[in-house]
Design a protein around this nucleic acid. Sequence first.
DNA 1: CAGCGCCGTAACATAATCGTAACATTTACG
DNA 2: CGTAAATGTTACGATTATGTTACGGCGCTG
Lengths: 250, 250
Amino acid sequence: MMQISSQDFLLRNDKLPERAKDSKPLILIVEDEEAIVTLLDYNLRSAGYDTIVARDGEEAVDLALTMAPNAILLDWMLPLRSGLEVCRHLRRFPETNDVPIIMLTARSEEQDKLRGLDMGADDYLTKPFSPQELLARLRAVLRRAQPARLKEILVFADIRMDQGSHRVTRGETLIELAPTEFRLLRHFMQFPGRVFSREQLLDTVWGREKEVEPRTVDVHIRRLRKALNGKADSDVIRTVREVGYSLDQP
Amino acid sequence: MMQISSQDFLLRNDKLPERAKDSKPLILIVEDEEAIVTLLDYNLRSAGYDTIVARDGEEAVDLALTMAPNAILLDWMLPLRSGLEVCRHLRRFPETNDVPIIMLTARSEEQDKLRGLDMGADDYLTKPFSPQELLARLRAVLRRAQPARLKEILVFADIRMDQGSHRVTRGETLIELAPTEFRLLRHFMQFPGRVFSREQLLDTVWGREKEVEPRTVDVHIRRLRKALNGKADSDVIRTVREVGYSLDQP
DNA sequence: CAGCGCCGTAACATAATCGTAACATTTACG
DNA sequence: CGTAAATGTTACGATTATGTTACGGCGCTG
């Protein structure tokens, strides 16, 4: 079916995994003072990181979105958009929501620090700082950064959920889901095979603000089943009597 | 429920395989005439490109999505799906939205050319052509290649936005947009298919200097829809309840 | 300064979704 | 088999989110 020369195919399959897995962490430096950029860049590269540099706030957002860095060093004072603004902005988007951000600032005022952390910064570094301190804090935030990353695309059997476009397909069919059905399915797909009680589902999918009858879950399970299965009888939701429901192979 | 090919979703919003920077550019040749394939293949390889070949429209879409070529040479007349269709199709998906496409055609009629460019082709080559011309144009589009979101001309389905001249067309129709509507549409076209919350849109399209009610977004969506759709009922903006809006195929 | 286009908001209209109760069916178990 | 408990299914009124319209204000431009 695919017409490609064997040479190409081998080449590509050789190269692809390499970059994905054991490449160096990429650090985005957001800083307009050339001297500091040079300093940071030199230290980070010496320590085995890859770096890219943004000179202003706009560029920072651009690069953060396109290059998917593993961490961001973000200067407080910037042209076009302040570091604070950039930080808040990045935190609004799923792609960058969980990238660790270390704020750099000339002042060490408590208030600024708190504001920075409020906006979603992970750590805080006061100029002047030693390269050792920088690297230590960087290692720390990178270490902590593991579990946050929710997958953008969830797959279970022939069901695909794309959280970016907010679409669900089963095989080749596009599935339309109401909001609660979507959240319910997402929760199941985040923990495939695991059984959840009605109470647990109410907690996680509904939230604990309003009291809802446990039996209401049944109704939404029914709606989700109907939407997912169409007319075929391949039910991916398993009822575990006395316990709850799980996403499971038919 | 609509039917979509599984290939469409295979890589949707996933990261495409990233090739090492110093590898040769990969060119996808879409052409059913063997003689021309041979010619193109020989010339491209001599000039230092890697090539893969698709013999029909279906295969073209498949390979474009799975192999992430750096550019596509696309014949106008094809089995299964016309080059025009393939072009439009590829432009609908984020992964292939920004791959440069050069259309190949036997005829040099102005009208075809315009239609091709409307569908999102980057350039146009009339058979017979000299290898020199081919390579020159290829170099040109590769040089210009940029992520969709930084492109000067954005294309989604039959909508074209030229940021240089600040013009928007849908099919043959010129669309007049107020400034906010323009920025809103631009943002959607920079991230086709992606859902944005009202808050995110206020951040990116409005900017956060002044506080604006989230519901104001609805009104501008309405105005944009009205301007784009005319009287036809082909709405390219999808409402995702409780979440936001996205640019999407009708 | 009058007219025009654009914007943000509130108010009202419409549509989608939700939660619940009531009834139907299945299951477990003696 | 027969019964009780658990789950499946359905229909419907209430609620909420979104669609739509109209209006006043503001900044330009002629």
